[in-house]
Nucleic acid binder design. Structure first.
Length: 560
RNA sequence: UGGGGAAUCGUCUAGCGGUAGGACAGCGGACUCUGGAUCCGUUAGCCCAGGUUCGAAUCCUGGUUCCCCAGCCA
């Protein structure tokens, strides 16, 4: 390759694929799959897997299937299927005509089970769940064989057929693989293949009352779809011998399973169980609450698909357990939105400013640049008048050193407007709180220029009080107060950040009144904000803070 | 005291017997009509102990620490 080319992103999985292609292992084919269970919404950890699987397929000119691993009707719902489809699509990936469901293969799986029974590799066990657990042994002690382990093939066939026919109660019998009750790998101690579940399935309805277990189902699904590299997370490493055993016994096409470390992110949780709990206990408004690490939540928060893909590219793929700093995700969205988000002015914590020497009834329109990073974004008009709002933080009665903003007697630039000088401070007599500033403006500085070349250190944002539109602004912060909430022994609820949402009424420039839901803006000097997908309307604009701008003054001030 | 994995700057990640590199974070500076962005500079790491070798993050031996597994969940 030439020096100007980007080095191809690589990792241990791509290294394996490179080797396989070199060895012509699957005829040079690369075919991956993303196999979610529709029992919850997708989160940023799934995004890592999606980017990996679809990314590899694209890179090697292979294919990637989207497959629902819907083998447990008691936990799965159509709502989750819909949300997953939506999330994968939104992230920018296309499964074309390859949308599959494990439930589509239930007949085939059943036939394979019959085949395995006939080969003496599986048996129907009448033990209860408790008894099976007792027979399993422990980590250090071998298990005991079930008394039903050596039933004849005929009896097994008959019993399995009756299981399927619905003759038995839930939990009364299971089909088990006949492997080795003394195996040091507990997964090999006669794992359950089928359980009886008289439950309606979201796709097959009441057709089945026996459902396959993950280990039995997954390899078959991969095999049927001619997957080459079955990529999953580390906790399945122990299951690989079983994955291999089933496919070998069946004598069918055999993909290879490869495991990588799942994503952990600081200050949030990633397990579906914990996320479900946050939803069910009302700690958040739903799976798509902008504080959730779900794809739907990130989307509503204002994250873009490209920023999430970029994040997934940057974190890499390895087998080390790791926790990525949330700051990296924030970096990715800032970098993206800095390039693309139009700027606007909004005051979230207003302080009234009266320009004493500006005519009472006059209004003028000033030109503001929409995006300094993108010349093509053009300009817009911003109304200016005698009474304005500025941010309360941008005024100090007794400014500390290196404070460049407004203070009594000081001059600052109003962005794209005029230079103003503070000539008076009006306070509430009882509380001492500053309630209004009086300033004078320099008409020669229209647009913010200084014809005399004088330098002004501070530039602050503002809105015209009469023209500003009120908007609900939701200021989000991290959901948890500790870096690894998942590690908290008594549950992560005890470390929930009670200030993760602050709602304020912002005064925003009029151009923002018609912000289309889902569009992002940079509120200058504050951060990136996104018109809420669900709640924002022209009558009542609602903005979510995606992420604050880097604030180097806050750092300086902290050290003062 | 079973089995399966993993250990490289604060956090991720490259390295495949030959100068430990990148990203984020941090720190310093330049520039700036966003204390934004950008640019420049900089701090900081091979789990430990032996061994092999001219030379070890890499190979060998022995330790240590962490993660996963005893669902009829996936």
């Amino acid at each position: 390759m030439t020096v100007s080319e980007q080095p191809r992103p690589s990792d241990f999985i791509r290294d394996i694929i490179d080797d396989d292609i070199r060895a012509n292992k699957y005829g040079g084919r690369v075919h991956t799959r993303f196999p979610p269970e529709p029992n919850g919404y997708l989160h940023i950890g799934h995004a890592k897997s999606i980017c990996l699987n679809f990314g590899i397929a694209a890179q090697y000119r292979g294919l990637c299937n989207l497959r629902f691993d819907d083998t447990n009707p008691t936990k799965e719902e159509q709502e989750y299927v819909d949300s997953i489809l939506d999330s994968v699509r939104w992230l920018g990936f296309d499964w074309e005509d390859r949308l599959y469901y494990a439930s589509d293969y239930f007949d085939q799986m059943h036939d394979y089970a019959v085949q395995l029974i006939k080969a003496g590799g599986a048996y129907v066990d009448d033990l209860s769940a408790d008894e099976i657990r007792d027979h399993r042994g422990t980590l250090t002690q071998p298990g005991k064989e079930s008394p039903y382990r050596n039933r004849s093939v005929e009896e097994n066939l008959d019993l399995f057929a009756r299981m399927r026919a619905g003759e038995f109660e839930d939990g009364s019998r299971v089909l088990r693989a006949k492997i080795d009750m003394a195996s040091p790998n507990l997964n090999m101690r006669d794992p359950v293949m089928y359980r009886i579940l008289h439950a309606d399935h979201h796709r097959t309805g009441s057709k089945w009352c026996i459902y396959p277990m993950y280990d039995w189902a997954h390899g078959i699904e991969d095999s049927i779809e001619r997957i080459t590299h079955s990529i999953c997370t580390l906790e399945f490493e122990d299951h690989r011998p079983l994955y291999d055993w089933f496919l070998e016994q069946l004598g069918v096409y055999h993909p290879q399973q490869i495991e990588f470390a799942r994503l952990n992110l600081s200050y949030t949780v990633m397990s579906k169980r914990k996320l479900l709990q946050l939803v069910e206990k009302g700690h958040v408004s739903g799976w798509d609450d902008p504080r959730m690490p779900t794809i739907a939540g990130l989307r509503r928060r204002g994250y873009t698909p490209s920023s999430i893909r970029d994040f997934c590219d940057r974190i890499g793929v390895a087998k080390t357990d790791s926790t990525i700093n949330i700051a990296l995700l924030e970096h990715c969205i800032r970098e993206d939105l800095n390039r693309t988000a139009p700027r606007a002015m909004a005051v979230l914590n207003p302080l009234r400013v009266v320009i004493d020497n500006y005519p009472d009834s006059e209004t003028e329109e000033l030109d503001a640049i929409n995006n300094p990073e993108d010349q093509g974004a053009g300009t817009r008009k911003v109304p200016f008048s005698r009474v304005l709002y500025i941010e309360r933080d941008d005024f100090r009665e007794n400014p500390p050193s290196r404070f460049f903003r407004l203070a009594p007697g000081r001059e600052v630039r109003l962005r794209y407007a005029f230079l103003i000088t503070c000539v008076g401070v009006k306070k509430d007599e009882s509380t001492g709180e500053v309630v209004e500033l009086h300033c004078t403006y320099d008409p020669a500085t229209r647009g913010g220029d200084t014809p005399d070349g004088r330098k002004v250190k501070g530039t602050i944002h503002w809105v015209s009080a009469d023209h500003a539109v009120q908007a609900e602004v939701r200021l989000y912060d991290r959901l948890f107060t500790v870096e690894n909430p998942g590690d908290v022994e008594d549950g992560c609820e005890s470390v929930l950040n009670t200030d993760s949402l602050e709602i304020v009424t912002g005064h925003v420039e009029p151009s923002l009144a018609n912000a289309a839901p889902g569009t992002s803006y940079q509120f200058e000097r504050l951060g990136y904000f996104c018109a809420d997908l669900k709640d924002s309307s022209p009558e009542r604009p609602v903005f979510n803070r995606t992420v604050a701008l880097r604030d180097s003054w806050a750092k300086i001030e902290k050290r003062l």
